[in-house]
Simulated assay, not measured.
Amino acid sequence: MMNKKEAREALASADALASQMRRGARQHNRLVFLLGLVMMVMTAVYGLMIQPSARYAVPVVLLIPFFILVIYTATRPVLPRHYRALYAVITATGAGIYSLTVTLGTTYFSGEPLWWIPGAVLCAAPFFLVGMLDRKAVHAAEGSP
């Protein structure tokens, strides 16, 4: 049977581990938001400034932040109930938005800011939504409102 000293040490160890995990979760939130900003800037730059000769190679590079988001949401070890399904819907919707923005923009709206700026914001929206959901889950785990 465990004595009081061992119990206190076990609780202190568990508290330290929980604190470390919360710090890691907060860092991931920041990285997801930063990835959204990168996606927004890359999409806007592609649509507004890239020369027509490089049109078809660059959208593949633009998918790198999106692939990182998909991997991030798929490999989270612990999630609140129904978040995995919600992340799947968010990333699938983001893929559709990205596909429409880049395909239609490249074909019909090359260099047109009225298409590419809102399109870039919409392409970044899944990142921001995942970041907000993660932040909400971290606050709920900490007991904060």
Rank of each mutant, 00 (worst) to 15 (best):
H82R: 15
I64Y: 02
E142L: 15
P113F: 01
P52C: 03
A140W: 08
E6M: 14
L17I: 08
S19T: 13
Y72S: 06
L122C: 10
P118G: 09
E142S: 14
L100C: 08
M49T: 15
R23H: 10
I90S: 11
A7F: 09
A18I: 08
L31R: 00
Y98I: 03
L63V: 08
Y46C: 11
R55S: 13
H139D: 12
T103W: 11
A88Y: 04
L129N: 07
Y46R: 03
A120S: 04
E6R: 12
V130R: 05
M21K: 10
P145V: 14
P113M: 05
V38D: 00
G111T: 08
T73S: 08
V60H: 07
L34V: 13
L104V: 13
Y98W: 07
V102N: 00
F128T: 08
I50R: 04
A88R: 05
T106F: 08
H28A: 14
L129I: 15
S53G: 10
K5H: 15
A124K: 05
H28D: 09
V138L: 14
K4Y: 04
F33R: 06
M21V: 13
M2S: 15
S99Y: 15
A120E: 00
T73M: 07
W116A: 13
I71A: 10
P145Y: 13
Q27A: 12
S144L: 14
V70C: 02
V70E: 04
E9N: 13
L35T: 03
P113N: 00
I50M: 12
E9P: 05
M40I: 01
V89Y: 09
V58M: 02
I68E: 00
V89E: 05
P113Y: 03
D15M: 12
T91S: 02
A44V: 12
V41T: 12
V60C: 07
G111H: 07
L114Q: 15
P77L: 02
P126Y: 03
P126Q: 02
G94E: 00
V45H: 01
V61P: 03
L11H: 10
A10R: 12
M42Y: 09
K4I: 10
A12W: 01
L31T: 09
F67L: 11
G24L: 01
G24M: 09
I71E: 04
A124T: 07
R23S: 11
G94Y: 02
L35A: 09
S110E: 14
I50S: 08
P52T: 01
P80N: 06
G36Q: 02
A14V: 05
R55M: 02
A10W: 01
Y108R: 13
D134I: 05
A88N: 03
